[in-house]
Design a protein around this nucleic acid. Structure first.
Length: 754
DNA sequence: TGTCTCATTTTTTTT
DNA sequence: AAATGAGACA
């Protein structure tokens, strides 16, 4: 068996690796730093490195590989399985820092004063907690804005700075003084205290507590050090100081460590990532060997050269000259438009033309932008032109209100101290427990230092503060949760989820609501149930029944990159540049290349500007064959028109590699007809966030009837032809006088009654 | 307590 | 343009 793998691998060594890649894979004499230029086969090196170690007889369970996304981990594992077979690769420790840390922390929870069912607070939980703290400490919420406070806390945690150290840190205090955040250290301390009281961690805590665990407990540390014979880290340029400490603690004392990264692609410093980790690697690991991968296998020469000319405007990087030996290729196309609508429309038109005339697959095309908000106008134009698309980011399934509510019930049953989950659902569906009551319960809980649920269990103890009538409601709720907590131990995940959705009234509440949203909510809850069932089935055969806690733990670490892409239609991809990291497409459009957008208006100092430049470098180097750059002279932003100049980065790119085009006329090219078929598939359309029913501004199809005159943002004025239902989505068919075409719009299409 | 209306704010990227 | 939050009122 081993021999067979060895042979197989050896053949692929010869076929698929170049000299530098091969040396990096086979080097086994100490710490290893691989600087891998864009498209130079970084993932391939890691994959082969791991496969190589496996064929050397290192058991999979002794190899730890840390990646940036769950998706990257999954894909790498698949590739390794293809090289060495599943039975060899199955036990690899492979995942994001966060998921691996969570796994260790749950196993060792009691060492750090948590239980193994601790909750991971998401961004919404964090925000609501910070708001409460700011209020309780009588601070001004205009100054202590939740976003600002959280980014300060996150930055402290990314640098492994405790609240005590924060209070004495001159560098943190200096920044805080500028923002008048004099009490930041107290807010941070209280925030941590309450997370711990709730048996909860935020994302940064997963890393931070792992360091504490390993540092404070020699027995645990040694156990893991003995488990991980080899530690490999992908995207090392985007790790923060806390992650550096984790890696160091795990890799010692043998330091069989291999990190791979590209300083030119470091784009997460806003999240605490520090390029220092890569720059000083050789100081931290004595005798570390450096390999550089400089040959780009992805893009044409023009694309690589253009990207190089851009990135060379940055100072302070590890010197490397990325080159391509592919064909010269087309120059980058640069086009300016008078406004964002024209930009979107022209991109859509060009994509339609690439598809129809050049026979390009939609799957081969991506549109990248700086901010998620830019997707909206692009989305409208794609629908107008009947181009199938997929948008990453924005609101995902697990962020929908009804799903978060359902999961909050699960969370509370699993962790009765989870006050954020409790506050979320204590009155959903309505139980007559209002804000005043909740505030009182919170106050008591805080004072007695117990979970809110405990207070609700025996309200008689607080007769002065809680009336008997209210007390009964609280007790009923607490009793229900207690019952859930009990059932959770006995029932398998799916049965439990079903029970909770029914007995909590969530499902019923959605079913009663016959508006389009109600129908959607019910469908989503059912989808959640089938998701739970699917999850449980996938894990069956491991012996035990899957519990709901396994499901929530997994879900709380999911990102929208990880969501099911089970449809097979060829679709155009739209995403932020950040989300595109690590991906590649034959054709890439980078839109919105303007001052005050890309680079972002928020960054003022030179180093932040350099990060934006690296971001554009990442964007351009996603392209294999063709790259289109666009900007608009004016753009809608916060309900206002903004005028701006082309991005300064455009002049950083050597003119030799750019083909500047004048904006085409806004009329459609004669050879491209408007599509006859309705474009969007229901799945790809997400309801607008926080859609409120029955307001004047937004409306749903069910509220329209045949003959209504309407005005649509894109299509202009028209008449409603008919309203009907299909696949749980209501559709409305409209005849637009101005265009003379019939078009289908989804229920959530934005319509204005005349 | 719940619902409706009006005013204010928004500044990016995400595990 | 749209989401959030505070205040009025039933």
């Amino acid at each position: 068996m081993a021999l067979k793998c060895n042979l197989k691998l050896r053949m692929q060594f010869i076929d698929e690796l170049n000299d530098s890649q091969r040396s990096a894979v086979a080097y086994n004499d100490g710490p290893l730093l691989v600087i891998a230029g864009a498209g130079s086969g970084k993932t391939r090196v890691l994959t082969y490195k791991i496969a190589y170690l496996l064929t050397q007889g290192i058991p999979a369970g002794h190899i730890l590989a840390l990646t940036f996304t769950n998706k990257a981990a999954r894909e790498m594992k698949q590739r390794i399985i293809r090289l060495v077979g599943e039975d060899v690769a199955r036990y690899l420790w492979m995942g994001t820092f966060h998921s691996i840390c969570a796994r260790m922390l749950r196993a060792e929870a009691e060492y750090i004063g948590f239980t193994r069912d601790f909750t991971i607070y998401d961004a919404a939980d964090q925000k609501s907690l910070v708001k409460k703290i700011v209020k309780d400490l009588h601070l001004d919420d205009k100054i202590y804005k939740s976003g600002v406070v959280l980014s300060r806390i996150s930055s402290a945690k990314a640098n492994f700075v405790s609240p005590e150290q924060y209070a004495h840190s001159e560098s943190f205090a200096k920044v805080d003084r500028l923002e008048r955040l004099y009490k930041m250290a107290s807010v941070y301390a209280e925030y941590n205290r309450r997370l711990k009281a709730a048996n909860a961690m935020d994302f940064d805590d997963l890393l931070l507590y792992t360091v504490l665990l390993l540092r404070e407990h020699a027995d645990v540390r040694e156990r893991y050090q003995q488990r991980f014979w080899h530690v490999l880290v992908d995207e090392y340029q985007d790790t923060n100081h806390t992650q550096y400490l984790i890696v160091k603690l795990l890799a010692e004392p043998q330091n069989h460590i291999c990190v791979v990264g590209d300083d030119a692609q470091s784009i997460y410093s806003f999240r605490g990532a520090t390029i220092e980790n890569i720059l000083t690697f050789q100081n931290g690991y004595q005798g570390a060997k450096l390999f550089k991968l400089e040959r780009n296998y992805r893009s044409t020469q023009n694309i690589v050269n253009a990207a190089n000319s851009l990135i060379h405007k940055n100072k302070g990087q590890i010197y490397k000259e990325v080159y391509s030996e592919k064909e010269e290729g087309e120059r980058l196309h640069l086009t300016g438009y008078s406004n964002d609508r024209e930009e979107s429309a022209s991109v859509a038109r060009q994509i339609l033309s690439l598809h129809r005339l050049n026979k390009r697959d939609y799957e081969d095309i991506a549109i990248l932008y700086r901010t998620n908000a830019q997707s909206r106008s692009l989305e409208e134009e794609m629908r107008k032109f009947g181009i199938p698309y997929r948008i990453y980011g924005g609101m995902s399934f697990y962020q929908r209100k009804e799903i978060k509510d359902a999961i909050a019930y699960f969370r509370l049953a699993a962790n009765v101290s989870d006050d954020e989950a409790l506050e979320r659902i204590v009155n959903v569906p309505k139980r007559g427990i209002g804000a005043t009551t909740i505030a009182r319960v919170r106050e008591i809980a805080l004072h007695d230092n117990i979970p809110m649920l405990r207070v609700m269990h025996n309200p008689e103890a607080y007769t002065g503060e809680i009336s008997a009538a209210t007390g009964r409601k609280l007790q009923a709720f607490a009793g229900m949760i207690q019952e859930f907590a009990r059932q959770m131990q006995e029932l398998p995940a799916f049965e439990f989820a079903q029970l909770v959705l029914n007995q909590s009234g969530l499902m019923n509440d959605a079913a009663q609501d016959t508006t389009a949203e109600g129908i959607d909510r019910k469908a989503n809850l059912e989808e959640l149930l089938s998701g739970v069932r699917q999850y449980a089935e996938d894990r069956l055969g491991q012996g035990e029944d899957t519990r709901i806690t396994d499901f929530i733990h997994e879900v709380s670490l999911l990102t929208d990159q990880d969501e099911g892409l089970d449809d097979t239609t060829s679709r155009l991809t739209m995403m932020t540049v950040h989300a595109a990291k690590g991906l590649e497409f034959p054709i890439v459009f980078v839109v919105g290349l303007e001052e005050n957008l890309f680079p972002s208006p928020f960054c003022q100092n030179e180093s932040e500007l350099e990060e934006e430049r690296r971001l554009l470098y990442v964007a351009i180097t996603r392209a294999e064959q063709e790259c289109y750059l666009t900007y608009a002279k004016s753009r809608w932003k916060n309900g206002q028109i903004n005028f701006s100049n082309p991005s300064r980065f455009l002049s950083d790119i050597d003119r030799r590699y750019i083909l500047q085009l004048s904006a085409p006329s806004s009329e459609p090219s004669p050879w491209i007809e408007m599509p006859l078929q309705p474009s969007p598939s229901p799945r790809s359309l997400k309801p607008t966030t926080g859609l409120r029913p029955k307001t004047e501004q937004q409306t749903v199809a069910s509220e329209w009837k045949t003959g209504d005159r309407i005005d649509h943002k894109v299509f202009g004025q028209g008449t409603v032809q008919r309203v009907y239902r299909e696949n749980e989505n209501e559709k409305i068919e409209i005849d637009f006088d101005t265009k003379g075409t019939k078009t289908l719009l989804l229920a959530y299409a934005k319509l204005i009654r005349i």
